[in-house]
Design a protein around this nucleic acid. Sequence first.
DNA 1: TATAATGTTTACAAAACTGTAACAAAACTT
DNA 2: AAGTTTTGTTACAGTTTTGTAAACATTATA
Lengths: 225, 225
Amino acid sequence: MDKKTVLIVDDEKNIRILLKDFLEREGFSVLEAQDGRQALELFNEKCEELNLVLLDVMLPELDGWTVCREIRKLSKVPIVMLTARSEDFDEVHGLEIGADDYVKKPVKPTTLVARINALFRRIEPDESKTVMSYDGLEIDDSSHVVKIDCQEIALSPKEYTLLVLLVENKGKVISREQLLNQVWGYNYYGGLRTVDTHINRLRMKLGSKGEAINTIRGFGYKFEG
Amino acid sequence: MDKKTVLIVDDEKNIRILLKDFLEREGFSVLEAQDGRQALELFNEKCEELNLVLLDVMLPELDGWTVCREIRKLSKVPIVMLTARSEDFDEVHGLEIGADDYVKKPVKPTTLVARINALFRRIEPDESKTVMSYDGLEIDDSSHVVKIDCQEIALSPKEYTLLVLLVENKGKVISREQLLNQVWGYNYYGGLRTVDTHINRLRMKLGSKGEAINTIRGFGYKFEG
DNA sequence: TATAATGTTTACAAAACTGTAACAAAACTT
DNA sequence: AAGTTTTGTTACAGTTTTGTAAACATTATA
């Protein structure tokens, strides 16, 4: 998987910096433009290597709408439009003139990246993955692979199901009854202590990451502190 | 461009009706489900003809997250997740487990349709690949020929179908139920162990390449590690 | 601090799962 | 119609997984 290049077009410098930093940390390569004219120039020049354009709607000189339409004429590069003021938030129009997503500012970088990845996943279906991750723990449910620091570990069916449930509800306490219902089935008849045993086995196999499974005395278990 | 089929999954009847009416007026064909279990059943049955799933997060029985993950395991059908309550609005998680868009209710039908169209615009008409290959294994679906290191091998119909399904979903775990549904037909009534037997026969015929078929204890089989 | 309540760990037998072989029914060929 | 191939089921064995109980540890409570 090669590095993706993103062009950020925004007239506010702090926003460009914020997004650029975050995207680079996520492994993207980033170009910047501060107005529509510059954006189009850069686009013409680097068209081939661009994978995505992050386009603000309010721009000096040439507005985002126009830039979006121009780019669409030339290329199929995905475009995400950003908008700040609610009166500019004509989502339907934005999508109709060729944007692939349309997002209201302020946008959390994590969210933005998640949306960008979802977009890429669509375009290059080979890399489609459904991963949950936390710290160095990675769960790909479609391939059923659990990794700790990129090292695959083997879990039994119950352990796996339990882990997925915990991670999925990370931050929330889940009672033993709930765990029994979800993992063992709602008409399962068995002792609650069984859950403890499995939690224990899971913790062992997760090694240091096992500490992310917290005991909430009297209530149940919770993933993450 | 033929008519697109959308599956609406929501437990609120008025929302289903509202969306259904609107989508049908826009030229879509619509199916409905009111809970997660029903959604998955419908999905298994109509998998082939579906183009999009509109999935509410809050559902009785099986929640939207689970449904989304299940669908993702087997298919590349786009999924749009809807959510009503803000505490359920974990956009990043939704997108990570395979949703293509994630929208907060109440959503204007016009907006929704614009987003759906933007999604479809991205998806290229899949040139139905006829040749699949993995390592020294080559499957030409148009001529029905399977080769190992350029050496043609003979597979029975069931073995062939099974292999194609596995290879098409390489890297993904497929449950015995799913294999039965896809290979033997949706309303086939027969034991799950039958799948094991055929997997076994397939492995034999594939020789060393047979090792690419992995057993995922408690869940099913997966092609490739 | 003593006691009760709750959670953790260990050990082991029971249960569940899978691979394989054998067999008979069904489908297909000739 | 006889022979061949494909198919579904069952049974058995080896292995892994699982549930339970009991001992052990920890935390709360009086």
